[in-house]
């Protein structure tokens, strides 16, 4: 039997534009998801430890193949205040989704067929980054959204005290600068697609702050800590031609 109740259903919204289907690996320690987007440019890794759910019960290993497109629609219509529960019994072909609105007591139940997702395991090597910078997640989202209105990619520069996001396109250029008090091994400069950063920043509601782990020429990591877990977004670097 598997039963998990989750109060941060907004997590689904943060990843739905990157991945359409995913295996949810359910273990007694919690739920994990690791998936690459179709363009092979971004990877989403989510870990939700059992302690973050009330209740959490999983007495055997279970892989639920879930359509995030469908899950998003279900969660969207439930509203922000709803909690989301996943239940599965010994039949691995279907699972139950239960949405509960605590304010009104309304309960919506679905029986959903588990999708057969032929998903390969992805090995992510441990990386030492030149800069690990933590900034308010709302500021990060504001910067990404603002610059992306006019421009396509962003150059990140970080020094001891400031991180600078700058961007240029046909209409001109723009930049945003933010103070931080994180450790850097040295100044860095790299370019990232703004479209993807805007996508990652949809996880803003999950956490007050976001941590950017940056080095030239290796995948960048954008991480949101959630209660008893994390949502990590890896992004392949752009290189000059």
């Amino acid at each position: 039997l598997f039963h998990a109740r989750f109060e941060q259903a907004g997590l689904v919204d943060a990843i739905k534009d990157l991945i359409q289907d995913s295996d949810f690996h359910c273990r007694d320690s919690g739920i994990a998801l690791r998936n690459m987007d179709n363009s092979q440019v971004a990877v989403v890794v989510i870990l939700l430890e059992a302690g973050g759910f009330l209740p959490y019960h999983c007495d055997r290993r279970l892989n639920l193949g879930i359509s995030l497109t469908s899950l998003t629609k279900i969660v969207h219509y439930a509203g922000d205040e709803a909690t989301l529960a996943l239940k599965a019994n010994d039949n691995p072909d279907t699972f139950n989704l239960v949405l509960e609105c605590l304010q009104t007591g309304c309960i919506i139940k679905y029986d959903i067929k588990s999708r057969d997702i032929d998903q390969e395991h992805l090995e992510i090597p441990k990386t030492d980054y030149a800069a690990t910078i933590t900034i308010p997640s709302a500021e990060f989202q504001r910067i990404c959204r603002n610059l992306s209105q006019l421009l396509e990619s962003v150059a990140n520069e970080a020094s001891e005290e400031r991180i600078k996001f700058s961007s240029s396109g046909d209409i001109g250029s723009g930049s945003a600068t933010l103070r931080h008090n994180s450790d850097l091994t040295g100044p860095i400069a790299l370019t990232i697609s703004l479209k993807y950063l805007v996508n990652f920043s949809k996880a803003t509601a999950l956490s007050y702050s976001v941590t950017l782990s940056l080095s030239s020429e290796v995948p960048q990591l954008v991480e949101y800590k959630v209660e008893s877990g994390f949502a990590r977004f890896y992004f392949a670097p752009q290189i000059g031609e």
Binding site: V43, E120, L122, E123, T191, P219, E241
Partner: peptide, 14 residues
């Protein structure tokens, strides 16, 4: 001109 790399050059599928 910037060219987008694939993550598969960094991460391997097992």
């Amino acid at each position: 001109v910037q060219k987008q790399q694939s993550l598969l050059s960094f991460f391997t599928k097992a």
